[in-house]
Design a protein around this nucleic acid. Structure first.
Lengths: 121, 121
DNA sequence: TTATTATATGAACACTCGTTCATATGTTGT
DNA sequence: ACAACATATGAACGAGTGTTCATATAATAA
């Protein structure tokens, strides 16, 4: 991790005010950590693809596996991750389990990210 | 990676329509991959903290290092990652390099994520 | 009950990634 | 030129993560 005081540019004396102000405005470390954990979930192409697929409505596990072209096991593992992060929910119907998006934040986060990706250089 | 055809539930015959429809609506794999790459950048607490700090305005490298309580080297490595993803930009002033947010998408993505994190269970 | 199907889970391996350390680059001042 | 400072970069190590394989659980049907 870090260290008590960092040997730094002398000019830091000039920026001390800015640094102190920013430090006070920063969300608590724990919240920033949670936020990073959330984005980590979106940081895998299989999971992103699953989420995009569920935009159109609920799908069962094997449907998703078929779409992703990966193992049922892999999909199941990933669905568990998404479930733990409250990004998807599920309902059981006999032997089949149907997954769907948990709330609208998912859509908005995906959209914002896609906007950035699609932006011209 | 995947495999040609996945042995799957017979009921898949029922869902074939849904799967085919979703498949057509899905963004191309390459775009989904880029999107995941973008979110991967946000999926690290040091980087998220840096981005949040830059919300208040530009900061030099050693200011950021001081805020993060990590090495200057670590910050520099992370800034390069952020720079490569077009999330931050920089300007040089003598020996000092000032970093700032590249565009407003960053803010919106952070906000959407934070909303989800802060949501009551 | 047993057999079959759909999904979940545990272990292990390969790979990725963030940090640290050492060093290089670039800028200013002497 | 050289020294001092701010930042960047390369190598390497350790921690974390996604997949596969094998197996377990759950539900339906006979």
């Amino acid at each position: 991790m870090g260290q008590e005081e960092i040997q730094c540019c002398e000019e830091n004396l000039v920026h001390t005010g800015a640094v102190r102000r920013v430090r006070e405005l920063l969300p608590p470390d724990e919240r920033l950590y949670d936020l990073a954990e959330l984005f980590k979930i979106f940081g895998d192409s299989t999971r992103v693809k699953i989420l995009y697929a569920l935009l159109e409505g609920e799908l069962c596990v094997c449907d998703i596996a078929s779409l992703m072209e990966v193992t049922q096991s892999a999909v199941s593992h990933q669905l568990r991750v998404l479930k733990n992060s409250k990004l998807v929910k599920f309902r059981r119907e006999g032997k089949t389990v149907y997954y769907s998006l948990a709330d609208s934040h998912v859509i908005q986060i995906l959209d914002q990210g896609m906007e950035h990706v699609l932006e011209p250089v």
